[in-house]
C-alpha cells in the first residue's frame, strides 16, 4: 500500500501581531506544520506500522521552513519526502494546490490513500482534500475525527453540523484528518538527528505540467468586529456586577 500525506507550512495564528494600521506583521510570526497536518502524518505513520504502508510526505513551497517541516515528518517516521518548489506558495489559489497534489499521483503514485489536514490552521479553507478527491476520482472520507483500517477498509467517524457520520471506504481514498484524530507522536532526539540526513526530492510545478496561478489579494488587514468592550468587575461584588450587566442587556433589548 502506498500513502501520501500533504503538509502545509502555516502561520501560528495565535501569535500573529498587527501594526498600528492593522497590517499583519508576518515576518516575525512563527510558522509551523499545521496541527491537523501533524495528525495526518501520525495517521500515515500508524498505517505504515500496522499495515506496512510506504509513506511519502509532500509540501508545496520553497522556503527553508518548508524543508524543516519535511524533516519534522521524517522524524515522525515517513519513508520519503518531496518538496514541490513553487515560489510564493502562499498566493497560489487552492485549485492550483489541489492540481499539484493530484499530479503527484502519476509521478510518485498511484497512492492508495492520501491524507490531508481537514483544514490548515491559518487559511482553513478545508477544500483541498475534497478537491483532490474529485480531481482524482477517489472516494472521500472528510473531517475524520477517528480513523481505523480494518479488513482492507478505512473506517472513520466525522462530526458535521447535523450530527455524527460513520463512513467506510476501500482504497483509493482521500482522508481529511482533524486535529482531534490522534495525539501526534513526539520524535526522539535520535529520530530528529536521523531526519537531518534524509534526502528531500525536489520537483518543480512545471515538471508536473502545472502552470501555477496566483490570486490577486488586496487589503490584507486585521479583522475586528467593532465591540463596546465595556468591562464589569465581578471580582468583589458579584451581585452588583450582575445587576449592572442585566440592566445593560435589557437596554440593548437582547434579554
Amino acid at each position: 500500500m502506498k500513502a501520501l500525506v500533504a503538509i502545509k507550512l502555516t502561520y501560528d495564528v495565535n501569535q500573529i501581531k498587527f501594526d498600528k494600521e492593522g497590517n499583519p506583521i508576518l515576518d516575525s510570526c512563527p510558522k509551523v506544520m499545521g496541527e491537523a497536518d501533524k495528525c495526518a502524518v501520525e495517521e500515515a505513520v500508524r498505517l505504515k506500522e500496522r499495515a506496512g504502508a510506504e509513506v511519502t510526505a509532500v509540501t508545496i513551497g520553497s522556503s527553508k521552513e518548508h524543508y524543516r517541516i519535511l524533516r519534522d515528518a521524517y522524524a515522525m517516521g515517513v519513508d520519503k519526502a518531496v518538496i514541490v518548489k513553487a515560489e510564493n506558495s502562499e498566493k497560489l489559489d487552492a485549485l492550483t494546490i489541489a492540481r499539484i497534489l493530484a499530479s503527484l499521483n502519476q509521478r510518485l503514485g498511484p497512492f492508495d490513500v492520501i491524507f490531508v489536514g481537514s483544514g490548515a490552521s491559518d487559511t482553513h479553507s478545508s477544500v483541498i482534500g475534497p478537491m483532490l478527491a474529485s480531481l482524482l476520482g477517489y472516494k472521500l472520507l472528510a473531517n475524520s475525527d477517528k480513523i481505523s483500517f480494518e479488513d482492507g477498509k478505512f473506517k472513520v467517524v466525522s462530526t458535521l453540523e447535523d450530527g455524527q457520520y460513520r463512513m467506510e471506504a476501500s482504497p483509493p481514498v482521500v482522508i481529511t484528518v482533524t486535529s482531534e484524530a490522534n495525539e501526534p507522536r513526539i520524535p526522539t532526539i535520535k529520530d530528529i538527528l536521523r531526519s537531518k540526513k534524509k534526502p528531500i526530492e525536489e520537483i518543480s510545478p512545471s515538471d508536473l505540467g502545472i502552470e501555477t496561478r496566483e490570486v490577486t489579494l488586496r487589503n490584507l488587514t486585521r479583522y475586528v468586529v467593532p465591540r463596546k468592550r465595556i468591562k464589569i468587575d465581578a471580582t468583589e461584588n458579584v451581585e452588583e456586577a450582575v445587576e449592572k450587566l442585566l440592566k445593560m442587556l435589557e437596554e440593548e433589548g437582547v434579554i
Binding site: 487552492a94 485549485l95 477544500v127 475534497p130
Partner: peptide, 23 residues
C-alpha cells in the same frame, strides 16, 4: 461556509476547474 458546504465547494471546484473562495 459550513463543513458540508466546504466539502461540496471543494468537490465542485475540482470538477469544474473553478477557484474556491471560502469564509
Amino acid at each position: 461556509c459550513t463543513n458540508k458546504g466546504r466539502m461540496l465547494a471543494g468537490i465542485l471546484s475540482g470538477k469544474l476547474g473553478a477557484i474556491p473562495v471560502t469564509d
